[in-house]
């Protein structure tokens, strides 16, 4: 998908620039944007590395597990049939907790294991309601500290880089609630063998 999008954008941009007569500007942009990518990765990469360090501390001191425990009652209401203390409950909660802390390296494998565990109840490779719910919740991100965005803002000279945190919380939380609601509405009955 992305390969096609990338190719189309590159080719169409150059054709349009050629027709419009600003092909030189376009060629310059090629070099200029490569340069800005290097400075972007140096600056934002530094913040991402720093944040990953702090988050590893949070993870090693079992802060993620604690957050997972707090969320567990809510999770069991959203995912029907997931029992307290079961393997899938643990995996789902840890996946969401890791996502909230921005530990995407840890979150993805946990989410994949949770999906595999949930798929034991599925028939004919068809997703169950719980599987759809887990995917939708993961698509609506909820992050406590939007570290990459804060880093980007400060890199581009913002006077208050962290100020977007609260608006992001409000927007993410409303989106998450909305996402859960529409997914619940679309749920049909699971196919049972």
């Amino acid at each position: 998908m992305l390969s096609i999008v990338w190719l189309v954008i590159m080719v169409i941009s150059f054709i349009y620039a050629f027709v419009g007569g600003n092909i030189e500007v376009c060629a310059d942009a090629l070099f200029e944007s490569s340069e800005s990518c290097i400075s972007f990765i140096l600056e934002i990469g530094a913040y991402m590395i720093m944040w990953s360090g702090f988050m590893r501390v949070a993870n090693d001191s079992k802060l993620t597990d604690k957050l997972a425990n707090i969320m567990s009652p809510v999770i069991r209401r959203i995912f029907r049939g997931v029992k307290k203390g079961s393997e899938e409950a643990r995996l789902i909660c840890s996946n969401l907790a890791a996502n909230m802390l921005g530990l995407s390296n840890a979150a993805t494998p946990l989410g994949m294991s949770a999906m595999k565990k949930l798929s034991e109840k599925s028939i004919n490779s068809t997703a169950t309601n719980n599987m759809c719910m887990l995917a939708v919740i993961n698509c609506a991100s909820l992050q406590l500290i939007p570290s990459t965005l804060i880093a980007m803002r400060s890199g581009y000279g913002s006077t208050a880089p962290g100020s977007i945190t609260i608006p992001i919380w409000i927007a993410s939380l409303t989106t998450l609630i909305f996402a859960i609601m529409i997914t619940k509405l679309c749920e049909g009955r699971d196919i049972r063998g």
């Binding site: 999906m115 595999k116 798929s119 679309c186």
Partner: peptide, 13 residues
């Protein structure tokens, strides 16, 4: 996520 579980029909996701 769905590749991990080998799901083909992802329904309303």
């Amino acid at each position: 996520y769905f590749a991990a579980s080998g799901t083909k029909n992802i329904r309303h996701t």
